[in-house]
Nucleic acid binder design. Structure first.
Lengths: 195, 195
DNA sequence: CGATGTTTGTACTGCGAGTACAGACTTTCT
DNA sequence: AGAAAGTCTGTACTCGCAGTACAAACATCG
């Protein structure tokens, strides 16, 4: 895969709603070409096919998320505070690009089939959270849990499911602001379900 | 779609590992026919295509889960106890049929595009949990949370992510027993991450 | 036993992914 | 400047595979 010019990368975003809506399988290359304005021949000049186009866009987003998460991790405060900051960041970036977020979540199978994407996904979601859980057990701001990986999965799972629901919801209905959503979500995850 | 004979439904299960591994997109109808032993012409006699075959299998599993969940809900005990029973049931059924579980989770987008499947998914996962959360707030065995839907999403999210990881994990590695997994997961979800 | 439905093999059609390639245009090098 | 190498895109093509057509064998049932 050749280095993709920023211009083209940006144009490709326009095809995302289409892909999110009908799935990559049902989205024809010509549709992607037409909607994005990038000629089909040019697409094949840069990518080897549909799969690679989508993988490229997803990887791009995951990189952005892990970058931002790293920043949030580096701030001051207890592990708990920074965990909340990280989760908020993840949610914000997913919601800001709804279509890509929906595709990411709706197509976890595709991601799990690509080692590169698995790695990016871990870097964006698992690793930062898992590190913070360990840190939190150290500085006392978080409970020591038996299985930290499961903790990060719980968070990741609730994040993506929340997003999925806001994304499935017809666009005409009002969506909760990411901050409210993130707040409620953290409330549940942090305090648990027991009284 | 005609009523599918039990025999054929059962044979189709054999094609699931294939679909889980490479995705429906990459799985050819002829492969499904060969692996399952159901002739291609017969497949098209009952189904309108690949999509419908997979949808049928998924719906089948979701129905089984919601049936079992309903049973677990009907037992004695506090809402908390029954919630744990329900979650254990969900995990058990997903793990017992790894391939289908993996497909279900890896292809949430497909599900979210089909109203029928959304409904089955809700019946299997959301509705029972959400009801129990409300009940639990009533009988005092669970905390009153601001957004019950979010509670059920958190649980669903952590369940499927845990499954996804056990499924992605190379088959040669030892998998945690569903009971242990469920136990750890409930520990996190119930008690939360705070000390 | 006729009628209606099931099952399956074989042969076919057609869509759309991906390829080939030539020509225009741009950048880089000498 | 001018050659060389790389970028971009239109057009026309191939070909794999999903889905269709259909006929013949077989079952079921009234």
């Amino acid at each position: 895969m050749r280095k993709v010019p920023a211009q083209i990368a940006s144009q490709l975003q326009q095809a995302l709603p289409l892909i999110a809506e009908q799935g990559l399988e049902q989205t024809k290359i010509d549709e992607i070409a037409d909607t994005s304005g990038v000629p089909k021949a040019t697409l094949y000049y840069y990518f080897s096919g549909k799969e690679e186009i989508l993988a490229y866009l997803i990887e791009d987003m995951l990189t952005a998320i892990s970058d931002q998460a790293a920043i949030a991790m580096g701030t001051d405060g207890t592990a708990k505070d920074r965990l909340e900051a990280v989760v908020m960041t993840q949610i914000r970036l997913l919601v800001e690009n709804r279509a890509l977020g929906a595709t990411l979540i709706g197509d976890l199978g595709r991601i799990s089939r690509s080692p590169g994407l698995i790695q990016s996904l871990q870097a964006a979601f698992y690793t930062p959270v898992e590190n913070l859980l360990v840190e939190g057990a150290g500085d006392g701001s978080l409970r020591i849990i038996h299985n930290p990986l499961l903790g990060s999965m719980t968070i990741f799972g609730s994040v993506i499911m929340s997003i999925l629901v806001t994304v499935i919801t017809p666009a005409d209905e009002e969506i909760e602001f990411p901050d409210d959503l993130a707040g409620d979500l953290l409330d549940v995850v942090m305090k648990g379900l027991l009284p």
